[in-house]
Structures are given as C-alpha cells and as structure tokens.
Design a binder for these strands. Sequence first.
DNA 1: TCCTCCTATTACAATTTTGTAATATTGTAC
DNA 2: GTACAATATTACAAAATTGTAATAGGAGGA
Lengths: 228, 228
Amino acid sequence: MPHILLVEDDSDIMRINRTFLENEGYTIHCADSVQTAAFKLEECVPDLVLLDVMLPDGDGMDFCKILRQKTQAPVIFLTARDENDSVVMGFRSGGDDYITKPYDLNVLKARIEAQLRRSVKQQPQHPRIELPYLIIDLFAGTATLDGNEYSLPQRELQIFYMLASQIGSRISYHDIYKTIYGCDVEDSKNTIRVNISRLKKHLNIDDMSTYEIAATSEGEYVLRRVMF
Amino acid sequence: MPHILLVEDDSDIMRINRTFLENEGYTIHCADSVQTAAFKLEECVPDLVLLDVMLPDGDGMDFCKILRQKTQAPVIFLTARDENDSVVMGFRSGGDDYITKPYDLNVLKARIEAQLRRSVKQQPQHPRIELPYLIIDLFAGTATLDGNEYSLPQRELQIFYMLASQIGSRISYHDIYKTIYGCDVEDSKNTIRVNISRLKKHLNIDDMSTYEIAATSEGEYVLRRVMF
DNA sequence: TCCTCCTATTACAATTTTGTAATATTGTAC
DNA sequence: GTACAATATTACAAAATTGTAATAGGAGGA
C-alpha cells in the first residue's frame, strides 16, 4: 500500500485525483502549497510525490530540490504548461516524470505504477569484490571462496578485502595496519600476522583452494591465484 | 623497491635492460619464454611486467590474459612491430603501455615510472554512502554523522546502511531481517527493534541531529533528514 | 482514571572478537 | 647437525557483540 503525497492548489483537481487514487488502494496525503507540502513531509513518508509546478506560494521545482534531500521517492510533475523548456527544467530539478494537463486518470495511474515499479526494483546491490571463485561482501561480512560462504570477523574481512582488491600485488604490514587502524604502531607485524593466520583457518585455505595468501621475505602479503 | 618481471628471449636486450633497471633500484626477475614466465609468476610477485610480444613458445598477448587473473600489475609490451593493429591488440589483451624497439632506455624508465605511479595512486576507495552530514563506510565499519565518527557493530551498521541507502522511504522489519539474516522468523520485530535502539544510542541521535530514525505505525522504519 | 496494546529501552548471559604473549615451526648459515 | 632468526600458530584474557527476555513508557479508548 504505497503512500502518495499530492501537491496541488486546485481543489477540484485535488478532489478528483484523491478519490481516484484512494480507490486504487493508495494512501493519499494532500497539500495545497509549498509550505504545507514541506510540513507534510515531516510526518508522512511518501513513496511517490505528485507535484503541481505552479503553486500559490512558490515553484514546484524548487520544492523538488528540497524534497530530494529527504527522500529518493519518484516525483511526477503535473502542469498545464507543455513547453519544452519547462519539461527540461522539471527533469533537471530531479523529477522522474512529467504529465501535462488535461490528462486521463488511467494514464496517471499507469505512470504512477511505472515509477513505483522502478523504484522498488532498484535492488540493494551491495558493494563487493568479485573475482573468479571468490566474492567478498562487505555488507554481509562474508567471503565466498570456491563456492563456500564464510562469515568473517571485521578485522579478517578488512585484511582479505585489501588483499583481494589488489590481487597479485605486495601489501606491507604497515599499509594494512595503517589502513585498518588509521595509524601505525611498533608491533603492527604481530597483530596482522595473527589475523591473517586466523583468516586462513576460517577460509579453510589449503592446497586445493583457488587462492593462496603468501608472505614475502620483506614483510609483505600477497593474495595469489593458484593455477594447476 | 618495486619488482619487475622481464620477459624477453633476446639475451642481449635482456642483459642491457636488466643491468639498467637494477641500477635504477628495481628488483628484476627474468624469463625468456612464456613457459618460464608463467612459472616465475608463481614465485615472484611483480609490480610491473615488461613483456616481449614475440616469444619462442607463444604470443606475449596470450600470456598477458593469463597474467591478469593473477595480478593487476601494469604490463608494458615491448616489440619490434609497430603496426597499428598490433598496438590495438596489445591494449585490448590487457596491456597498459606499448614500446616499440629500438627504444631509449630513459624512455623505458620514464614509462615504467609512469605506470608505477598510476597503479600506486589507485587509492583503495572504499564503498560508502555519502549524504549531507552523513557518511557510512562499510569497510571501516563506521558512520560519520554531523562530523562525529562512530564505530558501529556489524548489525547496527547493516541496518543503518539499509536505511540510508533508501533515505526517506519505508523499510519493514521483515525486509531488514530478511536482508541481514537471509531468512525471516517469527519475532524478527524484537531483534530489529533492539538493534535500532542501540544504533540510535551509539549515534547520539537527538533533536539536534541532522537525521532521525522514525517508526511508522505499520511496522516500518524510515531514515529522514530533519530540517529547521 | 484505569486498562490494554504497542513500542522503546534496558538487563543479562552466551558467544564472538581481538590484541598480546607464549609456543611451535620453518628456513638458513655455519 | 646445531644455532639462530624469522615466521606461523596457538593460548589466553579482556572487551565487545548480540539474541532473548524483562521492564518501562505512551497513546488511545472505555
């Protein structure tokens, strides 16, 4: 049941739209001015905004910019004007669609549904590293190696992420420590060593794994793909 | 002290390059064939590869593709050919630069330094959400709100990240629980509620904060920007 | 006012995480 | 082989995390 904020100063149009959309199952919040709309934003949480461009106390497009700081809900402009520059300005100020009056209510419905569909589909794609046989997902806090998913503690995940993001290149103890802890201390070596040891154990890294974590003789670590 | 892997079948050129680059302070590893080079890759960890296109047992460009699975170190092709399609093929197979023989050693040096500079500069830009007065850094596990950085536990960070990535829209208990735990259970409500309570406390969210976490009457949470 | 229901916070205990220190292992030079 | 040094692993205790359960707070209705 999506919530729609209707901003429109013409009471007749407002009534028609409201009745129609409520019958469609939407929860409707109304505002007849920029001021009221800004206030309504504080209490209602719209999934979509229908915004008249011409309002008694301001420009709908200016309001659109304010609104964007509060929500990413799609905005559909409603207006009598149909000049091209008006359309361009509407899109430029952050609008997602533009309907010129007079319009058919079923067209309105279709466009609303299209916008809602789009914004729902926008899946939460998590930031991750993807390499052959290896995925590191910072959101989930997991690493998937050779098809097995392991949930790793933060420190181990951070190290693994650093190594994987620069696969095949040397990363020093100092770099790792500095990146993770923000500063460097005397025996950063030991801490990193222990955590890499834990990481290897957690990942069940052995001779059969696709990757190996190797140490150089100069105090650096490398993540390498193993080939047979 | 970067490590450079030199793949070249002409022993004279090899010797000259090696001596010159070692004098410049680089650690040099040599290979005179694709086979040897592939083997060397297992033990040395090059920061840069100088690769002859014509090798006795294969094409340097094919080797370049293999190499890319093991490292992202820059590859500079060395070749006698100077036809354009050869250059294009070199870049297409993953090369970063292309030098035609005969070449000046100082040019070689300059191009090597340029590549190393570029690959070092490639800062580890962490995945993060940036909103006005709010940054969420999944790698560091921190949220910076109104200039104060807070280190958050995983669960709270996950919830905050979800809310922030869809600022201003309703997210249900179920969505949050399902995204974080992979499945849904009977009393997901309580778990999420407690963690959001902890999150608010950790962030010191109060009336002065730029954002608020509000609950709707339908079992949903919203992150909203507060305006004055 | 009192009751009820729903939400928010706090308490608590089991588990996990993590830096440090101790021990074991490996490699290398003599 | 032995000794030495460097690396790798394990042990351990303090601290943090986290789900569940208990308690507190608050709005709305009788």
